[in-house]
């Protein structure tokens, strides 16, 4: 009987410790999860900001002004050729290199 009492007592102590440990672990994990979620949120916000910045940098009126400064202009009709003409050009160049 006494043995049973002692066993029960130790069992109670052991389970209390176990529960305490589990509780502690849970809190730690929870904090970790929260930290990770915050990081992910921060990353998402950063992505949004970068996306907007890239959009602002690629805005056509800005590119237009820069391109014109560099001496570029919208393509002219005579600057378009068909794919066949391009490959013909390539062949001629390759032939030239071979010689």
């Amino acid at each position: 009987m006494r043995l049973l009492n002692v066993t029960a007592f130790f069992f109670a102590i052991a389970s209390a410790l176990l529960l305490y440990g589990l509780n502690y672990d849970t809190r730690r994990l929870e904090a970790e999860v929260q930290a990770k979620e915050r990081l992910a949120d921060r990353a998402r916000d950063d992505i949004a900001v970068l996306k907007a910045e890239r959009g602002a940098l690629a805005r056509p009126d800005r590119i237009d002004a820069i391109a014109r400064q560099l001496g570029l202009s919208p393509p002219r009709v005579d600057q378009f050729v068909t794919g066949r003409e391009v490959s013909a050009l390539d062949e001629r160049r390759e032939g030239g290199n071979g010689r």
């Binding site: 916000d45 949004a48 900001v49 996306k51 907007a52 890239r54 959009g55 690629a58």
Partner: peptide
């Protein structure tokens, strides 16, 4: 797919 409007914090 070029951005025209987005939400920012």
């Amino acid at each position: 797919g070029r951005l025209l409007a987005t939400d920012l914090e």
